[in-house]
Amino acid sequence: MTRKRRRLYVLIAALASLGVASALVLVAFQDNLVFFYSPSDLQTKSLPADQRIRIGGLVEAESVMREGLTTRFRVTDTAHSIAVSYTGLLPDLFREGQGVVANGKLGPGGVFIADEILAKHDENYMPPEVADAIKRTGQWKPEGSR
Protein backbone atom coordinates (compact mmCIF):
# COMPACT_ATOMS: atom_id res chain seq x y z
CA MET A 1 0.00 0.00 0.00
CA THR A 2 1.45 3.34 -1.01
CA ARG A 3 1.41 6.26 1.41
CA LYS A 4 -1.09 8.14 -0.76
CA ARG A 5 -3.45 5.19 -0.75
CA ARG A 6 -3.10 4.79 3.00
CA ARG A 7 -3.87 8.48 3.54
CA LEU A 8 -6.93 8.09 1.31
CA TYR A 9 -8.24 5.13 3.33
CA VAL A 10 -7.59 6.87 6.65
CA LEU A 11 -9.45 9.93 5.37
CA ILE A 12 -12.44 7.87 4.19
CA ALA A 13 -12.57 5.95 7.48
CA ALA A 14 -12.35 9.19 9.50
CA LEU A 15 -15.12 10.85 7.49
CA ALA A 16 -17.35 7.77 7.74
CA SER A 17 -17.02 7.57 11.53
CA LEU A 18 -17.53 11.31 11.82
CA GLY A 19 -20.71 10.97 9.76
CA VAL A 20 -22.04 8.16 11.95
CA ALA A 21 -21.17 10.07 15.13
CA SER A 22 -22.97 13.22 13.98
CA ALA A 23 -25.99 11.21 12.85
CA LEU A 24 -26.23 9.64 16.31
CA VAL A 25 -25.94 13.03 18.01
CA LEU A 26 -28.63 14.53 15.78
CA VAL A 27 -31.00 11.62 16.41
CA ALA A 28 -30.36 11.86 20.16
CA PHE A 29 -31.19 15.57 20.20
CA GLN A 30 -34.17 15.17 17.85
CA ASP A 31 -36.58 16.70 20.39
CA ASN A 32 -34.45 19.79 20.91
CA LEU A 33 -33.99 20.39 17.19
CA VAL A 34 -37.66 20.81 16.33
CA PHE A 35 -38.66 24.45 16.16
CA PHE A 36 -42.27 23.81 17.13
CA TYR A 37 -44.62 21.03 18.24
CA SER A 38 -47.70 20.06 16.27
CA PRO A 39 -51.07 19.74 18.05
CA SER A 40 -50.68 15.95 17.73
CA ASP A 41 -47.29 16.13 19.50
CA LEU A 42 -49.03 17.84 22.44
CA GLN A 43 -51.35 14.81 22.75
CA THR A 44 -48.55 12.23 22.73
CA LYS A 45 -45.70 14.04 24.52
CA SER A 46 -46.13 15.00 28.16
CA LEU A 47 -44.71 18.50 28.32
CA PRO A 48 -44.23 20.11 31.73
CA ALA A 49 -46.82 22.77 32.42
CA ASP A 50 -45.69 26.40 32.56
CA GLN A 51 -42.94 25.75 30.04
CA ARG A 52 -42.66 28.10 27.09
CA ILE A 53 -43.15 26.17 23.87
CA ARG A 54 -43.94 26.85 20.23
CA ILE A 55 -46.78 25.15 18.46
CA GLY A 56 -47.22 25.12 14.72
CA GLY A 57 -49.89 24.12 12.22
CA LEU A 58 -52.57 25.60 10.04
CA VAL A 59 -55.11 28.20 11.15
CA GLU A 60 -58.32 26.18 11.14
CA ALA A 61 -61.00 27.34 8.68
CA GLU A 62 -63.79 29.47 10.21
CA SER A 63 -62.13 29.51 13.63
CA VAL A 64 -60.77 33.07 13.72
CA MET A 65 -62.59 35.47 16.07
CA ARG A 66 -61.33 38.99 16.73
CA GLU A 67 -62.20 41.07 19.80
CA GLY A 68 -60.24 44.30 19.62
CA LEU A 69 -56.56 43.41 19.62
CA THR A 70 -57.20 39.88 20.85
CA THR A 71 -57.54 37.13 18.29
CA ARG A 72 -58.84 33.66 19.08
CA PHE A 73 -58.38 30.83 16.61
CA ARG A 74 -57.57 27.13 16.42
CA VAL A 75 -54.31 25.64 15.12
CA THR A 76 -54.69 22.26 13.46
CA ASP A 77 -52.47 19.62 11.86
CA THR A 78 -55.64 18.04 10.38
CA ALA A 79 -55.51 15.24 12.99
CA HIS A 80 -55.73 17.31 16.19
CA SER A 81 -56.27 20.98 16.91
CA ILE A 82 -55.74 23.38 19.79
CA ALA A 83 -57.33 26.70 20.74
CA VAL A 84 -54.99 29.72 20.69
CA SER A 85 -55.47 33.18 22.08
CA TYR A 86 -53.18 36.06 21.07
CA THR A 87 -53.16 39.77 21.79
CA GLY A 88 -51.19 41.94 19.41
CA LEU A 89 -50.52 42.62 15.76
CA LEU A 90 -50.66 39.66 13.40
CA PRO A 91 -48.28 39.14 10.45
CA ASP A 92 -49.65 40.07 7.01
CA LEU A 93 -49.83 36.47 5.85
CA PHE A 94 -52.05 35.43 8.79
CA ARG A 95 -55.37 34.06 7.57
CA GLU A 96 -57.45 30.89 7.72
CA GLY A 97 -55.65 27.95 6.13
CA GLN A 98 -52.24 29.61 6.57
CA GLY A 99 -49.34 27.91 8.35
CA VAL A 100 -48.42 29.67 11.62
CA VAL A 101 -46.09 29.17 14.55
CA ALA A 102 -47.26 30.43 17.97
CA ASN A 103 -44.89 31.04 20.87
CA GLY A 104 -46.28 30.97 24.39
CA LYS A 105 -47.61 28.79 27.21
CA LEU A 106 -50.39 26.33 27.62
CA GLY A 107 -52.95 28.13 29.78
CA PRO A 108 -55.92 26.93 31.86
CA GLY A 109 -58.65 25.10 29.99
CA GLY A 110 -56.28 23.84 27.33
CA VAL A 111 -56.08 27.26 25.62
CA PHE A 112 -52.65 28.13 24.33
CA ILE A 113 -51.78 31.72 25.32
CA ALA A 114 -49.47 33.03 22.61
CA ASP A 115 -47.36 36.15 22.89
CA GLU A 116 -45.82 35.86 19.41
CA ILE A 117 -47.32 34.66 16.14
CA LEU A 118 -45.10 33.98 13.13
CA ALA A 119 -46.46 33.20 9.67
CA LYS A 120 -44.99 30.19 7.95
CA HIS A 121 -44.49 30.41 4.22
CA ASP A 122 -44.84 27.30 2.07
CA GLU A 123 -42.57 26.28 -0.80
CA ASN A 124 -44.96 27.32 -3.60
CA TYR A 125 -44.28 30.44 -5.64
CA MET A 126 -46.65 31.65 -8.36
CA PRO A 127 -48.09 34.82 -9.87
CA PRO A 128 -51.60 35.87 -8.69
CA GLU A 129 -53.15 34.96 -12.09
CA VAL A 130 -51.85 31.40 -11.81
CA ALA A 131 -53.14 31.10 -8.25
CA ASP A 132 -56.58 32.34 -9.40
CA ALA A 133 -56.60 29.92 -12.33
CA ILE A 134 -55.78 26.98 -10.06
CA LYS A 135 -58.52 28.02 -7.63
CA ARG A 136 -61.01 28.29 -10.51
CA THR A 137 -60.30 24.73 -11.69
CA GLY A 138 -60.74 23.43 -8.13
CA GLN A 139 -57.20 22.02 -8.03
CA TRP A 140 -56.20 24.30 -5.15
CA LYS A 141 -54.72 22.36 -2.28
CA PRO A 142 -54.44 24.16 1.02
CA GLU A 143 -51.11 23.93 2.81
CA GLY A 144 -50.62 20.88 4.94
CA SER A 145 -52.64 18.58 2.69
CA ARG A 146 -49.57 17.85 0.57
Binding site: L33, F35, Y37, G56, V101, Y125, V130
Partner: peptide, 24 residues
Protein backbone atom coordinates in the same frame (compact mmCIF):
# COMPACT_ATOMS: atom_id res chain seq x y z
CA UNK B 1 -37.38 17.77 6.00
CA UNK B 2 -36.00 16.13 9.15
CA UNK B 3 -37.31 18.61 11.71
CA UNK B 4 -40.10 21.15 12.08
CA UNK B 5 -38.61 24.44 10.97
CA UNK B 6 -39.99 27.90 10.30
CA UNK B 7 -38.10 27.86 7.00
CA UNK B 8 -40.09 26.28 4.18
CA UNK B 9 -38.95 23.04 2.46
CA UNK B 10 -37.07 23.04 -0.84
CA UNK B 11 -38.87 24.60 -3.83
CA UNK B 12 -36.61 23.75 -6.76
CA UNK B 13 -34.69 20.54 -6.07
CA UNK B 14 -37.53 18.29 -4.90
CA UNK B 15 -38.51 14.77 -5.89
CA UNK B 16 -41.81 16.10 -7.28
CA UNK B 17 -40.11 18.74 -9.43
CA UNK B 18 -39.95 22.53 -8.96
CA UNK B 19 -42.78 24.17 -7.00
CA UNK B 20 -42.00 27.53 -8.54
CA UNK B 21 -43.96 28.87 -11.50
CA UNK B 22 -41.85 28.80 -14.73
CA UNK B 23 -42.10 32.61 -14.97
CA UNK B 24 -40.23 32.80 -11.64
Amino acid sequence: DWWNTLHQPASVFTLQGPKIDPSM
